[in-house]
């Protein structure tokens, strides 16, 4: 807690806060629009000038969505799949990132090159063969079809490889000298220092699964298995899209991710404060 602020610091604080607030307002304004839109019926959403006053259709839109379209299933499916994916994927990516960052081994360059190549080839190109694999495995319409193929997310591996570089080698060496096993070092020494990065990774993995659209669209077969983006897409038609319902669904779909972000973000700032407390 800071109590004594010099006048200079106050001015600086105000300036920084003002700039961030203006930018933040620009970031949030669209979300305000989304909330307003979800309180209207289609015909009132699109008007000139833009309709920025909330309407009275939110409840109707939500009822249509959750009762009429069974959107609750989708939220549940997405939450479950994204949570499992973030936990398992977090483990897989962190372990791989650790290997790349803190070991020197034969084939390291080639293997990391493969990670980059997988990152580089657009997924649209591999959609068809991946779908064929799922058909062969008889995995259509299953959770594992959503979770397993992209569990080793190149982005996550890359993220952890980079952030692991800041773990001091001496720390690991010292533990080895003390005779600690390799997996114990990883679990009890390295991981605890990586909390900010792990929190970030968790959010990104969750988000990657939560927002993924085309691949789930292809492998999911029945509406009770749909994830949120697939369910939202199914609300779209050519001439009869209920945009009130669709945008209410979009708004609802933002909330769990924001909740997770709020829950995990304390770990981004924990480091410095914790360090200060320790002293």
């Amino acid at each position: 807690m800071r109590i004594n602020r010099s006048p200079q610091t106050r001015v600086a604080s105000l300036a920084v806060s003002a700039v961030v607030a203006i930018g933040g307002a620009l970031m949030l304004a669209p979300f305000y629009w989304l909330i307003v839109a979800s309180t209207h019926r289609t015909r009132d959403i699109f008007s000139n000038p833009p309709n920025l006053v909330p309407g009275d259709q939110l409840w109707t839109n939500l009822v249509n969505l959750f009762v009429g379209e069974g959107f609750g299933h989708a939220v549940l499916n997405s939450t479950l799949v994204a949570t499992i994916y973030a936990l398992l994927g977090g483990l897989v990516c962190t372990a791989a990132g650790y290997a790349f960052a803190k070991f020197r081994f034969a084939g390291q360059g080639v293997l990391f090159g493969i990670v980059l190549v997988i990152l580089a080839l657009p997924s649209q190109v591999t959609l068809v063969p991946l779908f064929q694999i799922m058909v062969q495995l008889n995995w259509l319409n299953t959770y594992q079809a959503l979770i397993l193929p992209n569990l080793a997310l190149p982005f996550g591996i890359f993220l952890m490889r980079q952030t692991m570089q800041s773990v001091p080698d001496e720390l690991i060496q010292a533990a080895r000298v003390d005779g600690a096993g390799e997996f114990r070092i990883f679990a009890q020494i390295v991981l605890p220092t990586m909390r900010p990065a792990l929190a970030a990774l968790g959010i990104f993995l969750f988000l990657a699964q939560w927002n993924d659209f085309v691949y789930p669209l292809i492998v999911l077969r029945t509406s009770d298995a749909y994830t949120v983006p697939v369910a939202l897409a199914s609300l779209q038609g050519l001439s009869d899209t209920d945009y009130g319902q669709l945008l209410a669904g979009t708004m609802v779909s933002v909330l769990p991710v924001l909740g997770l972000f709020l829950f995990l973000q304390r770990h981004f700032v924990a480091g410095i404060l914790a360090g200060a407390v320790k002293q």
């Binding site: 933040g24 970031m27 669209p30 979300f31 983006p229 924001l258």
Partner: peptide, 17 residues
């Protein structure tokens, strides 16, 4: 904490919206 979240919101916005 509020602003961090504010800047994060756009990432979550669905493509249609």
């Amino acid at each position: 904490a509020f602003w961090r979240t504010a800047y994060f919101v756009p990432i979550v916005m669905g493509l249609v919206a």
